[in-house]
C-alpha cells in the first residue's frame, strides 16, 4: 500500500527536527568541509525540504544557496523558517537552472525517492560547473541480493540500492566518484530514536504504512540491511561541452 512519505510525517520531524534525515546537519557539515567550497560559491540544495541544509550552508559557510523542492507545503515552511533563502518549486528530475551554473549540488536523502534517479544525476551533472561537486547522502542496501523485488510503498527504502549499483549510476551520469563513506550509524541512531519515541518498530512502521504490512515488510527490510552513505562526486573537467 502507498503510505505517507516518511519525510512528510510528524513521526520523523519529532525526532530529526527540520533536517528530516539521518545524520542531520553534522553530515552536511562533514561533506561541505570535505568539498572545500569558498564563500560565495553557488550551491543548490536539491530536495531541500524545510531548508535546513541550505540555510546552514548560507549562514555558516557563506555559500550562495538555492533550495529546490516539489512540495509547496515544505517550501512554504522553509520560507517562513529561513527568511531570505532563495527557493524554487520544481521537479528534481527537471532542474530549472542553466547548465554549468553551480559549484555544488547537495542531494540528501532524496535520490532514493526519485522515480528516475539516473535523470536526477544527469541533471546534477548538467547544472554543475566542471570540477563542481555533488554531495549525495542516502539510504543504501548493505545486502542488496537479499532485497525483495521492490519495497512498494516504502518511500525512500523503496529506492535504496546496493553500493555497486549506486556507483554505476553515478559513473553513467558522467560523474567521477571522489568519496564514499558508510554512515550507517546515523540510520541506526535515527531508527532507535523513532522506536524510543513511538514505542516499538511495529508502531513506527504501522503509523507510517499501516499495520497490515508491518511484519512482512519489516522482515524483508531487515534482510537487506539498510545503511546510510555519504558520497561525493565531481563533474569531470573533460566533460565540458
Amino acid at each position: 500500500m502507498a503510505g505517507t512519505a516518511l519525510y512528510e510525517s510528524p513521526l520523523l520531524r519529532q525526532v530529526t527536527g527540520p533536517a528530516l534525515r539521518p545524520g542531520g546537519l553534522a553530515l552536511t557539515e562533514r561533506a561541505v568541509d570535505w568539498c572545500g567550497f569558498s564563500p560565495g560559491d553557488r550551491v543548490l540544495d536539491l530536495g531541500c525540504g524545510l531548508g535546513a541544509s541550505a540555510a546552514y550552508m548560507a549562514g555558516d559557510h557563506r555559500l550562495k544557496t538555492l533550495g529546490l523542492d516539489i512540495s509547496t507545503e515544505m517550501l512554504a515552511e522553509a520560507a517562513l523558517a529561513c527568511q531570505g533563502l532563495p527557493l524554487v518549486r520544481a521537479d528534481i528530475q527537471a532542474i530549472p537552472l542553466t547548465a554549468v551554473s553551480m559549484d555544488g549540488v547537495v542531494c540528501e536523502c532524496v535520490l532514493s525517492l526519485a522515480d528516475r534517479p539516473q535523470a536526477v544525476l544527469q541533471e546534477c551533472r548538467r547544472v554543475l560547473k566542471p570540477g563542481g561537486s555533488l554531495i549525495l547522502s542516502d539510504l543504501y542496501l548493505r545486502n542488496p541480493e537479499q532485497s525483495a523485488p521492490n519495497f512498494a510503498g516504502c518511500g525512500c527504502l523503496g529506492g535504496a540500492r546496493g553500493r555497486e549499483e549506486m556507483e554505476a549510476i553515478i559513473s553513467a551520469a558522467g560523474l567521477e566518484l571522489l568519496l564514499w563513506e558508510d554512515h550507517s550509524h546515523y540510520l541506526r541512531e535515527l531508527a532507535a530514536r523513532l522506536i524510543w519515541e513511538h514505542g516499538s518498530a511495529d508502531a513506527v512502521w504501522g503509523a507510517w504504512h499501516g499495520a497490515e504490512c508491518c511484519q512482512l515488510q519489516a522482515a524483508r527490510i531487515a534482510k537487506s540491511r539498510p545503511g546510510y552513505f555519504l558520497m561525493i562526486a565531481q563533474r569531470k573537467a573533460e566533460a565540458v561541452g
Partner: peptide, 13 residues
C-alpha cells in the same frame, strides 16, 4: 523487554 530491547538491538546493528 519492550522498546529498550528493540533500541538496543537496532544500535547493535
Amino acid at each position: 523487554s519492550g522498546k529498550m530491547a528493540e533500541v538496543e538491538q537496532i544500535l547493535e546493528d
